[in-house]
Write a protein that binds this DNA or RNA. Structure first.
Length: 894
RNA sequence: AGGCACGUAGCUCAGGGGCUAGAGCGCCGCCUUGACACGGCGGAGGUCGGCGGUUCAAAUCCGCUCGUGCCUACCA
């Protein structure tokens, strides 16, 4: 660095710049475009595959959903990750920082459906050379155009490539120091291979299974969903009191239900074993109204006697408890709700739908069949109100009026109607019997902030379903499975044929399993493909292994797995973090990464979550144009990890102000001409000592992921210990040599060396947050002088920067100088004269210790404040660190 | 219902047993000094949500409480 050269080469000239060659103002757009290209060209963000693991810092970057809209939340969390990466790079680490695009899955399908007003229908034939146009509003009113599955997938690919370009442009603009040669799409061949390999590996070790079982089902998307994708929404509902009969008696009882439309699917009745009211019923059979179906009455500890009437009907399937009772009691299956959410046709009196009065039952059910759940509910309530609907024929089955309540109902997080439980055949991964292992892995990861680990733990402990892996959708990674067909053409679903490792990736609807011919597809004795695709998280949970080339390149995998850090938002701890931890545990009994840094959310100024539907989303590009990328990064890096933050444009403004100040201070410091001399003056040494303390604190903060505190400390030091104070005091001495006073060479040299060291260190402390302005200022002189062409690969400041500078004679020199400077400034402000006004004479009052310490910095303070004559007087009443100015005589205004 | 976080100046936030509780914005007054008016100097402004406790000492630790946000559970 500068002073190091000075020590070796005393008397040589400092490499100063001509300030007239530097722009008057910092043109952020120009600098951002130019430096981005320079960084791409020089490859400073590239991972070096040769350097050893312990010098490598691996980032498991979140692949954004490219079909989502860009908003300031992206700038926020991705910048926070980049800040940590840039710190590690400057510490000399070999950075592996890839970027992916999570394009497979439902969000892309939905976007394509809406954008082109199309739907996928696997029955429609393929159209070669399909050209789609964005439809008019008029065309959108007509039914959506149906596309074959291959056509639909092609359109998905086209659109994601466009969407990803927008994100890429934003990331480049923001200065994310991503290694773009490591880019991937979760739908590409490589990711499909990894995902299918994961399945194959789990299959071989009996960690996945397929089973026909009641599964949460979205009736609009018509696919199974996993527990992690289900969320509760509180909805208005109503308890309907419905009278049931008891077989072979005139007795009856009243159940309460919020889902009267499931009455035809009633397969049992249950109450608490200790409930006196219903004790006598256990073991008997109840008779449902309207349908006359006899169902067993059993006792269950799970029933809450306080709730409703204390006795309830079990249906296939109203909720998760129904599923549990159905399993435990071995109840009948009377599936009512179809895949499209409408009630399927059934016939009472047939097997499985026994009824005491089949004709009446079928007449009643005819009113419901084909209706959706909501319509059926309204209609059955009318039927239950009718006189004669009660069991036994006297009166109405519905007792009183439905009692309105609010209750939580499970929805698919992207869905519009409540989830239904449908018995369908799905693939599952075994997680429930591995909770202990998963919890242990969660402990092993270091979470930043630490309390975020509780989110993971809560979720894992409360997990109650294995991971449903299969989705009945189109744009995703196919499940690499075929089923053999028997002589009559029926598939043997328990004899899945999983694609060989060497075959991957496969599309089983196109590719052929080993040992079969293409012509045997769909033929008796042949095979058929599993038509489903994976849950998109099945692939995204492999991002560390996608980057490390798990399963295909063991050497690379060893270098890159587990990763050092996973940055992500707290909203996806239960999905992305959880599944990633689960996969690494299942495959290799490993953590996927050593650290998880969890960003908060950006809320709108009213502290509401930003969302497209609320229309309160801020788009980042206009802000970046107005305030600069560095200012946006300043805003993002000002927030601590894990805390949600209300969007505040003022912070961008402050960031821009800081950028301007760095630019101007840099220009000034580097324009000072001087000879190389060591830092010797007391004030300079005192400043350097302060600076060293700052560096120590910032380094510690960055190491512990407290980048916001490091930034705050650096900013505060820069402003109040550098530009407003030290620089003001040292600049007069710094200029003396250049102004012609040859006798001042050593003192000026000390000031300039110290100013340059201060600038160099502060630029480097700011560099992770403000990559553009720091690189720009660095390029003017330090780049040539220190041998590090880019600040971003220059060494992080530390002991080496300060070891040649002697400690100050007094530890108090710096604060005393600043206090005297402040006192004189205050006197000028009170006299309403400019800070530049000369002072003919004044008396500086202070306590004895301070005045003694003042002597060592006296000449700099007086020069910086333009005081000609200064007398001092002891005033024991003044506290340490406080001076008072008395009898100031100001020179007339020039 | 359990858990976590948060509550500090008008606003957005730092601070986390002991300096006179801080910053920026906003507000008031002033200043164009050879880096910067996209600037500088000075000032006003807070019983640190409330109550109680531990301590020589609490914004900070503990308990209770109120408010806000989120996580998990609750679906008859």
């Amino acid at each position: 660095m500068a002073e190091a050269d000075g020590a070796k080469n005393p008397g040589g000239r400092v490499l100063a710049i001509d300030p007239n060659t530097i722009a008057k103002h910092f043109d952020s757009a120009e600098v951002e475009a130019r430096l981005d290209l320079a960084w791409q060209a020089s490859g400073i963000h590239r991972w070096d595959p040769v350097r050893p693991r312990d010098e490598t810092f691996v980032v498991d970057t979140p692949p954004p959903t490219a079909s989502g809209s860009l908003h300031v939340g992206h700038v926020f969390s991705y910048t926070q990750a980049d800040v940590m990466v840039r710190f590690q790079r400057m510490r000399g680490m070999n950075i592996f920082y890839p970027m992916g695009w999570d394009d497979n899955g439902l969000p892309t399908e939905r976007r394509v459906q809406n954008y082109y007003h199309v739907r996928c229908d696997p029955e429609v034939p393929y159209e070669a050379d399909l050209q789609l146009e964005v439809p008019s509003a008029k065309q959108r009113k007509k039914p959506a155009r149906l596309l074959s599955r291959p056509n639909f997938v092609e359109v998905c690919y086209t659109l994601i490539n466009e969407d990803e370009e927008h994100f890429r442009a934003l990331w480049r603009r923001l200065g994310l120091s991503v290694d773009w040669s490591q880019e991937y799409q979760t739908i590409n061949d490589h990711c499909r291979r990894i995902a299918q390999l994961s399945f194959r590996d789990l299959f071989e070790r009996d960690l996945v299974y397929s089973v026909e079982a009641p599964t949460m089902w979205d009736v609009d998307f018509q696919t199974a969903v996993a527990q992690a994708e289900a969320e509760d929404r509180v909805l208005p509902g109503a308890y309907h009191s419905i009278g049931f009969g008891v077989e072979g008696s005139d007795e009856g009882f009243v159940i309460a239900t919020t889902r009267p439309e499931l009455l035809p699917a009633c397969v049992g009745v249950t109450a608490h074993p200790d409930d006196e009211r219903y004790r006598g019923l256990f073991g008997k059979r109840a008779i449902t109204p309207l349908f006359g179906v006899p169902v067993p009455i059993f006792a269950s500890e799970h029933v809450d006697p306080e709730k409703g009437t204390g006795v309830l009907m079990v249906c296939t399937f109203g909720d998760a408890t129904d599923v549990q009772w159905w399993r435990e009691e071995g109840l009948a299956l009377r599936q009512l709700v179809g895949r499209n959410g409408r009630l399927v046709p059934i016939e009472f009196g047939s097997e499985g739908f026994e009824s005491q009065r089949p004709d009446a039952a079928n007449a009643a059910y005819a009113e419901l069949a084909g209706k959706n759940v909501k319509q059926a509910r309204a209609r059955i309530v009318e039927l239950l109100r009718e006189p004669g609907s009660a069991v036994g024929g006297a009166g109405a089955a519905l007792e009183g009026e439905p009692e309105p309540i609010e209750h939580p109902v499970k929805f698919f997080e992207k869905g519009d109607r409540p989830l239904e439980y449908l018995p369908t055949r799905q693939w599952f991964a075994r997680l429930l019997d591995r909770k202990e292992q998963l919890l242990a892995k969660g402990e092993e990861v270091v979470w930043h902030p630490a309390f975020m680990q509780a989110r993971f733990r809560d979720w894992t402990e409360n997990l109650n379903l294995d991971w449903c892996l299969s989705r009945q959708r189109y744009f995703g990674v196919p499940i690499p499975v075929w089923y053999p067909l028997n002589a009559s053409g029926e598939p043997d679903l328990d004899a899945a044929i999983v694609a060989e490792r060497e075959q991957l990736p496969v599309d089983p609807t196109v590719d052929v399993p080993t040992g079969y011919e293409a012509g045997q597809r769909g033929q008796p004795g042949g095979f058929k493909a599993d038509p489903d695709i994976f849950d998109t998280w099945f692939t995204s949970s492999m991002t560390p292994q996608i980057s490390s080339h798990w399963g295909t390149d063991p050497e690379r995998h060893a270098r890159l797995f587990p990763a050092d850090v996973r940055p992500q938002g707290h909203d996806i701890i239960r999905t992305w973090a959880f599944y990633t931890i689960a996969k690494a545990a299942l495959h290799e009994d490993s953590v996927p990464w050593k650290n998880a840094m969890i960003s908060g959310w950006i809320l709108d100024p009213d502290r509401k979550k930003m969302s497209k539907s609320k229309g309160n989303v801020m788009t980042p590009l206009p802000l970046l144009e107005q305030y600069s990328a560095d200012a946006g990064r300043y805003w993002a890096a000002s927030a601590r990890l894990g805390s949600d933050t209300a969007f505040d444009e003022k912070i961008w403004k402050i960031g821009k102000r800081l950028v301007t100040k760095i630019f101007n201070a840099g220009k000034f410091v580097l324009a000072q001409e001087a000879e190389h001399h060591p830092i010797s003056a007391e004030l300079d040494r005192a400043f350097v000592a302060k600076l060293a303390t700052l560096v120590e604190g910032c380094t510690h903060d960055f190491e512990s992921y407290h980048y916001a505190r490091a930034l705050q400390q650096t900013e505060s030091f820069f402003w109040s210990h550098f530009t407003d104070t030290y620089l003001e005091l040292a600049k007069v001495r710094a200029r003396r040599f250049a102004d012609g006073d040859a006798s001042a060479a050593v003192e000026s040299g000390s000031a300039v060396a110290s100013l340059r060291l201060g600038l160099s260190v502060l630029l480097r402390l700011f560099a992770p947050v403000l990559p553009y302005v720091t690189e720009e200022v660095w390029s003017w002189a330090f780049a040539k002088e220190g041998g590090h062409a880019s600040i971003h690969v220059a060494p992080w400041p530390g002991e080496a920067d300060f070891s040649t500078v002697a400690a100050p004679a007094s530890k108090r020199s710096f604060e005393v100088a600043l206090a005297a400077h402040a006192a004189i400034n205050k006197a000028k402000a009170e006299a309403e004269v400019s800070m530049g006004r000369e002072v003919l004479s004044l008396v500086l009052a202070g306590n004895a210790d301070d005045l003694a310490a003042f002597e060592a910095v006296r000449s700099d303070v007086l020069a910086g404040t333009r005081v000609h004559e200064c007398a001092t007087t002891v005033d024991a009443g003044l506290e340490a660190g406080h001076f008072a100015v008395r009898d100031a005589a100001f020179a007339p205004r020039p």
